[in-house]
Design a protein around this nucleic acid. Structure first.
Lengths: 227, 227
DNA sequence: GTTTGCTGTCATGGATTCGTCATAATTCTG
DNA sequence: CAGAATTATGACGAATCCATGACAGCAAAC
């Protein structure tokens, strides 16, 4: 567990309720009380899933979803929309705006949790908090990396970098992409910095003989390839 | 076994029935005939689980639940709500469902017991009220900590902190998360305060050589890791 | 009233991690 | 093979984060 969920909801009470329900279900929760606030938060490291209220002051939930879908950075984020009862048009608009699922208020916490789990499963987000690849184990709950069952120390940034790699094996990332998804887009750092961190990651993996999992794709960036 | 259950129910007959059923199943039962009476009892040592009737004279069960959730002291108490058939309104289902589960009357004793057991298991309430990890024993009933069978004095906050850690071993918590779950939301304290309490906890554990169970996860927070 | 114990905050210092650069090494292109 | 482009690597100052001790407020106990 320990997947991060961002709740975008203006009504304080409902936000509280969602936070409580989700926290108890083992998720880590962030809140935003408007679409604008959400956009701000999404500049940083991305959550695993969004819950968006349809009715928001200022930019509506539908509009927010549409904008997120158009942005490459957030295009693949799983989203669940909350709508008021019986508004058929809402449903249509929701799916139209690229929503993955929707829930009509009032809903039961059980149903909410079930849908979230289903969605995370469907979109391939690992749920158990452990990503393993051969002898490499990344425990997201404990925030621990181990190779061959042996704990390996690694800095925060390299941890997030490895996490991204292991979540998307066999996929090449450009440096700009890596900066976006690991550092967050509101931060400006040199692209070459990525090289250094990849180097450091390799260096910590080297003594265990698994440093070749991270391969450089010349002219493009890097890739994590299971043997 | 021997978990304490507080039954909050105004109808005398149903209370009797519940008491009988629960006692026979091996629980220790307390009763309250109103929300107000329940609040009084909850000032003392906490039970492991609450059973709340939705319809109560004076403060309703829903209102009671909401208040309990806002109080750090009782925020994490497992709760089961009893509703009459047809009372199963929208409100119950959505807003006030900090409730972990609910049962519609009439229900079978077997079902009630099953749900209670499931809930206790799910929320990680140890059946005997003692969490042990190696030489460290945390007695939740007596509110006592001992290492190697030797009593160790520890403040209330550090006790709750250690309790959270031991209930979730090998899981990293952020400072905000710890504040939420140990201090309770709606309280504002500096995040750095967590550091101090972790320090104090380590300090009290140090003479027994088990202070390294609590590890810091740089850039994230802290973690309790057996061995 | 006094004492004791607990709590939250702060300042300081130390350790780790980060980002950048300069330079060496590698790969590609013609 | 030479030259250009791209990446690897080591070093270093800056920034960040955490541990620690001190201190004042507060409440309960004496």
């Amino acid at each position: 567990m320990d997947n991060k969920v961002l709740v975008i909801e203006d009504e304080h009470e409902i936000r509280e309720m969602l936070n409580f329900t989700l926290t108890r279900a083992g998720f880590s929760v962030c809140e935003a009380d408007s679409a604008e606030a959400a956009l701000g938060q999404l500049d940083g490291p991305l959550p695993d899933l969004l819950i968006i209220d349809w009715m928001l002051p200022g930019m509506s939930g539908v509009e927010l979803a549409r904008r997120l879908r158009q942005d490459e950075h957030t295009a693949n984020l799983p989203m669940i929309m909350l709508t008021a009862r019986g508004e058929e048009t809402d449903k249509l608009k929701s799916f139209d705006s690229g929503m993955d699922d929707y829930l009509t208020k009032p809903f039961s916490p059980k149903e909410l949790i079930a849908r979230i789990r289903a969605l995370l499963r469907r979109t391939g987000t690992p749920e158990n908090g452990v990503i393993a690849c051969g002898p490499v184990r990344l425990d997201l709950n404990a925030h621990k990396l181990s190779v061959d069952g042996q704990a390996v120390k690694v800095g925060p940034t390299e941890f997030r970098l490895l996490e991204l790699f292991m979540r998307n094996p066999d996929r090449a990332f450009g440096r700009a992409q890596l900066l976006d998804r690991v550092w967050g887009r509101s931060i400006y750092v040199e692209e070459r910095t990525v090289d250094v961190h990849v180097l450091r990651l390799r260096k910590t993996l080297k003594p265990h003989g698994v440093d070749q999992l991270i391969q450089t794709v010349r002219g493009v960036g890097y890739r994590f390839s299971p043997a």
